[in-house]
Simulated assay, not measured.
Amino acid sequence: MELRGFGDEHGRLVAGWTRTAQEVGVLSGREEYPFPADLIGSWHKDDPDIESYLYFDGETPVGYGEVWLDDEEDEVELARVIVDPDRRGRGIGAELVRALLKPAVAAGHPDIFLRVRPENAVAIRTYLGVGFVDVSQQEMDEWNAAQPVAYRWMRYAG
């Protein structure tokens, strides 16, 4: 398995991995199902602080994720992690998160965070298994104040 940079030619494929409105929301920020055709090619932000990656099994993409760099806050956030639904349940999500941690750690910031919807038990188990822990309730409440959803925020503890 190998982590590679994301190219627009894979946008339609990754968008097709969303099987619910919730998954569309995680990937694009909009909760429409199916994935809105007008977003394909533009849903991953053209922002120099966002690094988008595909996770490959040989030449087949099996996962997608982003590393959001925040120099101002001296932190990194893993975001928009999704695995091909035909490949779920095989540990690929954990492998993908471990692979995303490499560029996140290499960025040199002391903290690596992610947010997950509290009802996403599979993702939470994955993140806990990779070494993420919950932030304090006070931090969670503070960070969720400006969010459209009350996320479960986690910090990488190594």
Rank of each mutant, 00 (worst) to 15 (best):
G63I: 05
K102D: 12
G25E: 15
V81R: 11
L128T: 10
E66H: 04
I82G: 00
T60H: 02
T20Y: 10
F56Y: 07
P148I: 03
V14D: 00
A123R: 01
V62E: 00
G58M: 11
E77N: 10
R98L: 08
R155F: 06
R80W: 05
G16Y: 12
A15R: 14
R155Q: 11
D134A: 08
L100C: 11
A94D: 02
D141W: 01
F56I: 02
R30Q: 14
G11N: 07
G5P: 05
E139Q: 15
P148F: 07
L54G: 03
D57P: 00
R117Y: 06
G58N: 14
T60K: 08
D70Q: 04
L3I: 08
E31R: 11
P48W: 02
A157P: 00
A150D: 13
H10S: 12
P118F: 01
V14R: 06
L3V: 04
D134T: 07
A21D: 08
L78R: 02
E51G: 04
G29A: 09
R80P: 00
E75G: 03
E95R: 14
V149D: 06
G41E: 09
A150F: 03
A123G: 07
P61N: 03
G93C: 06
G41F: 08
A146H: 04
Q22E: 12
K102T: 15
E9V: 13
G131H: 01
Y127A: 07
R152G: 01
R152H: 11
G91S: 11
L128K: 09
E9I: 13
R98N: 03
R115I: 01
I124E: 13
P110S: 03
W153N: 08
A79V: 04
G5N: 15
Q138D: 15
T20S: 15
L114S: 05
G65A: 06
V116M: 05
N144L: 02
G16T: 05
Y127C: 12
T20D: 04
L54P: 03
R4A: 01
A99T: 13
A21Y: 08
D46N: 14
A15T: 14
P148C: 06
V24S: 15
A37D: 15
G41D: 14
I112Q: 01
A150L: 08
F113C: 02
S52M: 00
D57Y: 07
V81Q: 05
G16R: 13
E119K: 10
I82V: 15
K45R: 15
D8W: 10
L27H: 03
D46F: 09
L100Y: 06
P48Q: 06
D46C: 11
R30T: 14
V133D: 05
H109R: 13
G158D: 06
T126K: 05
L101M: 11
W153S: 03
V81M: 09
Q138F: 08
R87C: 05
D70N: 13
H10C: 09
K102N: 06
D141R: 11
E51L: 11
D141K: 08
A123T: 03
R90S: 02
Y151T: 09
P34V: 12
L96H: 04
G41N: 09
P34L: 14
